[in-house]
Design a protein around this nucleic acid. Structure first.
Lengths: 146, 146
DNA sequence: ACTCTATTGAGACATGGTATCAATAAGAAA
DNA sequence: TTTCTTATTGATACCATGTCTCAATAGAGT
């Protein structure tokens, strides 16, 4: 399974550029999301944050998650655990596979999706501005294990 | 935009086969979902149901929506209004377009998606059992109107 | 160090959805 | 038709998730 090679520094740079004041909590939350092996819900991220910084407020974490999602740095998983979990975004990769066994997420090459969208736009006449494709199943690793 | 030609009778037949006791409320809810021009949330369906049957319970509607979703008769929209709205399913069509202007949903031909999934399975080694593709934008009709 | 302002934390609040349980109604049997 | 059995229903209490408010705090520039 592809390792999600996210650099916390890149995120911080993007946050900085967006005019958002970068604080210690924000760095911590970025680290938590960027380095988690599994998709995280906001509540889970809050739990983790409080392990090293007990007085972290709940609203703070929700606010940060919203910012990170709006900046496109994390991405919400749909159709899984009530649509409340997030994974780091990988630039240019839109197709996300979620293993129903181990729960890990994996990005797949998405040029074919671009073609599909172009084609759908042409035949339907709709103007497509955004897309969301998620695939579910059993990942290659879990298939071997079983 | 494609008219969603759902037959309430077909749904009732499916419910019947599934061993679920078909009641008056269920017929009403099927009608509500099958004939709505727009995606409906459970709460909205409840509101509509109470217009003609005021003592309809909230839990009853939630239970029915769950059943209809499990039977594959309605489908949840993701990334729109908090993932809480549903549209009737059209058999064989998996690609759903949602107009961000008028809010209507439209199914698109999905053979290309089948190919894409097959291809992704081959290259990734994952076993893909389910997929969810949603497209967002401005529908052909709303483009003309604007 | 001081000022200004965005961010934070605490807790109240709102919303969406679930659990419980007595009352009801559907369908089978008599 | 009446009775019996059982799934479904409605009312309400409950819970989880997420939002709002506002005083306290801490960054960043001066």
């Amino acid at each position: 399974m592809r390792s999600n090679a996210i650099k916390s520094e890149d995120w911080l740079a993007e946050l900085d550029e967006s005019g958002i004041r970068v604080t210690a909590i924000q760095e911590m939350l970025i680290d938590i999301f960027a380095h988690s092996e599994y998709p995280l819900s906001t509540e889970q991220a809050w739990d983790i944050a409080r392990q090293s910084r007990p007085k972290t407020g709940r609203a703070t974490v929700y606010r940060m998650v919203e910012k990170l999602e709006n900046l496109g740095l994390i991405r919400r998983l749909h159709g899984y655990q009530g649509c409340s979990h997030f994974v780091p975004t990988l630039p240019g990769l839109m197709m996300l596979f979620i293993c129903l066994d181990c729960g890990r997420a994996d990005y797949l090459e998405s040029q074919p999706l671009d073609h599909l969208i172009q084609q759908s736009e042409d035949t339907s006449g709709h103007h497509i501005t955004d897309s969301r494709l998620q695939l579910y199943g059993i990942c290659a690793t879990c298939q071997q294990g079983a």
